[in-house]
Amino acid sequence: MRMNRTLGVLAASAALSLAAPAFAATNFFTNFDSINFGSGPGFTTRESYEGWTAGRNGLEVQYNNVAGAAFSGANLVELDTSANSSMSRMIDPGTYVLRYWYSNRPGVPASSNGISVLLNESPIFTTPGGNGGASTNWVLQTVNFAVTAPTTLTFSAIGTSDSVGGYLDSISLSAVPEPASWVMMILGFGMLGVALRRQRQAKLRVTYA
């Protein structure tokens, strides 16, 4: 009986370990608020920020409503600094859901507000932008994709390169388990449950014999 329980637990553990690689993919959340730039409104152009590496023209962190309110916290990012720019980071293989909040820059025409999402410099999704109103208007954008090798994920300003453009805030990347991994996990938990149930039954037989 002890051998059967041991084999059941080992089998369950093996099933769970086979599913584990799907969860080794990249997960992150960034809302650009890791630095408090002070109480007054302003902006700063940086070469990197919160795991993102800027393109050749840097990335602009705006803070404290200098040209519109952030979606969350005090800071947001604009990628049209002195000219169109970008920000990138590496991600591991996996199936993903990318979510980010986007706003047109207030008072800026649609021709300057677009932002594109790229994988290894190939566009997969574009927020074309619209005419900016009197204040920021944040809209959630969702992109699903899968990559089979380490990949560069990039946000890039598109449209007129004129030092004003669309805004980004509260970006998250979440790995989605593959269907096969779900099956293995369910199998593993099921086998573990059977092993534990048999163990309890064995204890009851010993107690009341």
Rank of each mutant, 00 (worst) to 15 (best):
L7I: 15
V9Y: 00
A11I: 13
A11K: 09
A11T: 13
A15L: 13
L16H: 09
A20F: 09
P21W: 03
A22T: 15
A22I: 10
T26N: 05
F28P: 06
F29Q: 11
T30R: 10
F32A: 15
F37A: 09
G38E: 08
G38Q: 08
S39N: 13
S39P: 05
G42Y: 10
F43M: 07
Y49D: 12
E50G: 08
T53G: 07
A54H: 09
A54K: 06
R56T: 15
N57W: 07
L59K: 04
L59F: 08
N64W: 10
A67C: 02
A67F: 10
G68P: 09
A69D: 02
A69S: 12
A70T: 02
F71D: 10
N75R: 11
E78G: 11
D80G: 07
S82L: 14
S82P: 00
S82M: 13
S82K: 09
N84H: 06
M87K: 10
S88D: 07
R89C: 06
R89W: 03
T95Y: 07
Y96P: 07
L98K: 02
L98R: 00
R99D: 13
Y100C: 11
W101G: 02
S103V: 13
S103L: 14
P106C: 15
G107H: 04
V108L: 11
S111Q: 11
S111I: 15
S112P: 05
S112W: 00
N113I: 14
I115V: 14
S116G: 04
S116I: 04
L118N: 10
L119S: 13
N120D: 15
S122P: 00
S122N: 12
P123V: 10
T126W: 02
T127C: 12
P128T: 15
G133T: 14
Q141G: 12
V143N: 05
N144T: 00
V147G: 02
V147S: 05
V147L: 01
V147F: 01
T148P: 00
P150Q: 08
T151E: 02
T151P: 06
L153H: 07
T154Q: 00
F155S: 12
S156F: 02
S156N: 07
A157S: 13
A157K: 06
I158L: 02
T160G: 15
G166A: 07
G166S: 07
Y167A: 03
L168Y: 04
L168T: 09
S174P: 00
S174V: 15
A175I: 13
A175S: 14
V176T: 08
E178H: 02
E178D: 08
P179Q: 06
P179S: 09
A180V: 14
S181N: 11
W182V: 15
W182Y: 11
V183F: 06
I186G: 04
G188P: 03
F189Q: 04
F189L: 15
M191P: 00
M191D: 05
V194T: 14
A195K: 03
A195M: 05
L196V: 15
L196N: 14
R197Q: 12
R200C: 04
Q201W: 03
A202F: 07
K203F: 08
R205S: 05
V206W: 01
V206H: 00
T207G: 06
Y208E: 09
A209S: 14
A209P: 06
